[in-house]
Every structure is written in C-alpha cells, then in structure tokens.
Simulated scan of single mutants.
Amino acid sequence: MEVIKDKKTIIISALLLLLAVLFFTKVSSAHQIQELNQNTIAALDEKKEKVMLLAATSTAASTAITLIPGDVGMPLAENLADVSDYLLVVIGAIWLQKYLIAIAGMVSFKFFLPVACFGLIAYLFTRRQFFLQLTFKLALFGLLLFGIVPTSVAISNHIETTFQASIQQTIEQTQKENEKIDKELEKGKDSDWFSGIVDTFKGQTTKVINNMENSLSNMIDAVAVFIVTTCVIPVLVLMSFIWIINLIFGLSLNTDIRQFSFIGQKIRKRRKVSSES
C-alpha cells in the first residue's frame, strides 16, 4: 500500500513539474498571452478606435468653427479643442492596459504559478501544511494578477454598451455639422469672397453655434464615460484585488505577529527568572 502511495505521489509530482515547465516556457510567451486575452485586446482596440474617431471629430469641429467670420465661435472652438486633450489621456490609459496584460501574464505564468506547482510538490512529499497554504496563496495571487485587466475591461464594456448609441450619434451629428460648415464656405468662395461669406452665414451662424454647443455637451458626456470606464474602473478593480490579496496574505502576517509576541513573552519570563536568581 505504501509503494502504491509513493507511486501516485511521484506521478502527480511529475505532472505538476511538467505543468510548471509549460507555464514557464509556453504559456508565459507574449504570443500565448495575447491568445488568452484575445477578446480583451480586441475590446481595447475597438475602444481606442472610437476614442480616436471622437478626438478627430472634435478637432475637425474646432477647426471648422474658427472659419466662421468673426470671433463668435472662438470660445466654443477652444472648448472643443480641450476635448481632444482629455481624449489623449483616455488613449494613454488604453495603451497602458494593453501593456499591463502582457506584464501581468508574464509575471503570473513565469513566477507565481510555477512556484505554486513546486510548493504543491513539496507538500506531497512532506505533508506540511505550510507548503499547501503557500501553494494556495501563490496560485490565487497569480490568477488575480492575471485577471485584473480582463475583469476591468469586462465591466467597462458592460457600462459602455448603455452609452454606445449616444456616443455614435454624437460623432455622426458633429460630422454633419462640420460638413455643413465646409459646404457653406465653398458656396461663399464662388461669389465675391467677403460678401459671399457674410451672406452665407447671415442668419445661419446662430443655428450652427447652437448645434455645435449641443454636440459639445454630448462630447463631454462621452468623454466622461470613457474616463470612468478606462481610468476609474481599472483603479477600482485594482484596489478591490489588492484588498483581496491583503486578506489572503494578512492571515499569515497575523500568525507571525502572534508567534513573535509568544516568543517575546518567553524571553521576558527568562529575564525575570534570571534577575530573581
């Protein structure tokens, strides 16, 4: 019976060793990590395209408004230009998440999960609970680290789905207003330059400005959604995972503190006995 038990231990240990080698050599490669996070990366790329389109639209709208005769549209043009600046921050956050996917996957599969396999092997041969607890903590830490970005992206996509139609409508409406301004300018160029421009925009400037103000308001809402889903939610997910990790590793920390306090009591008792003697 003992021989059969030893054989099972050796076989399971060999499988765990093979799994650790696969984690370290195959799964941790950049190509494999991208394959595992294919849906997450595709969602980030799609979001990046939307943000870049919105940034290009706001920049074009700002440029178009500056072409209107007079300074009536300058404050609005400046506000539209500011929208592009905020969207650059969102694009930077998207790129950061894409890099974190590769880094977190590499650290998890090259360090935490292989070490967890070795810890389980050590437990099979020694039957010490320390190795079993260490295996559980390292494996859970590696999986949590690997799942931070996919979890935040999944939550962000769920929120963005509610505002997707509104964001697309804002982009299309702003593009139509930009085209309308360009067409009116072209009409003005066909006649006398100055008088043509004045006649073209007479009675239309107020309407264009009002439409652009509505577009700006909708753009601000869209930017707020992107900032929340791209910057705020990943931070909240990270803080939640750190809290979970503190709960996991804090157990051993509390145990160590109790052990140290117990040792301290022993030392104080010995000093008291020696001083009395």
Rank of each mutant, 00 (worst) to 15 (best):
D82P: 02
D85A: 14
Y86T: 09
L88Q: 12
V89W: 06
V90A: 07
V90Y: 06
I91D: 04
I91W: 00
L96K: 15
Q97T: 02
Q97N: 03
Q97R: 07
Q97P: 05
Y99T: 15
Y99G: 14
A102W: 13
A102V: 15
I103T: 14
I103G: 04
A104F: 13
G105Q: 01
G105Y: 01
G105W: 00
V107E: 05
S108D: 02
K110C: 11
K110A: 08
F111Q: 07
F112I: 07
P114E: 03
P114V: 07
V115R: 05
V115I: 14
C117G: 12
C117R: 07
F118P: 02
G119A: 13
G119I: 03
A122I: 15
L124T: 15
T126C: 10
T126K: 12
T126H: 06
R128I: 10
Q129E: 12
L132D: 02
L134Q: 07
L134F: 10
L134G: 12
L134H: 08
T135N: 11
F136D: 07
F136N: 10
K137N: 13
L138S: 08
F141A: 08
F141S: 12
G142T: 01
G147K: 10
G147D: 08
I148H: 10
P150C: 05
S152Y: 00
A154K: 09
I155K: 06
I155P: 03
H158Q: 09
H158Y: 07
T162S: 09
A165Y: 07
S166E: 11
I167T: 12
T174Q: 09
K176S: 13
E177F: 02
E179N: 11
K180L: 09
I181T: 01
D182Y: 06
K183A: 11
E184M: 11
L185M: 05
G188P: 01
G188S: 09
D192V: 11
D192A: 13
W193Y: 11
F194Q: 09
S195N: 15
G196S: 01
I197D: 00
T200D: 05
F201P: 00
F201M: 00
T206P: 03
T206K: 11
T206L: 11
T206F: 06
V208T: 10
N210W: 05
M212D: 01
M212A: 05
E213D: 08
E213R: 13
S215Q: 05
L216W: 02
N218M: 10
M219Y: 06
M219S: 11
I220A: 13
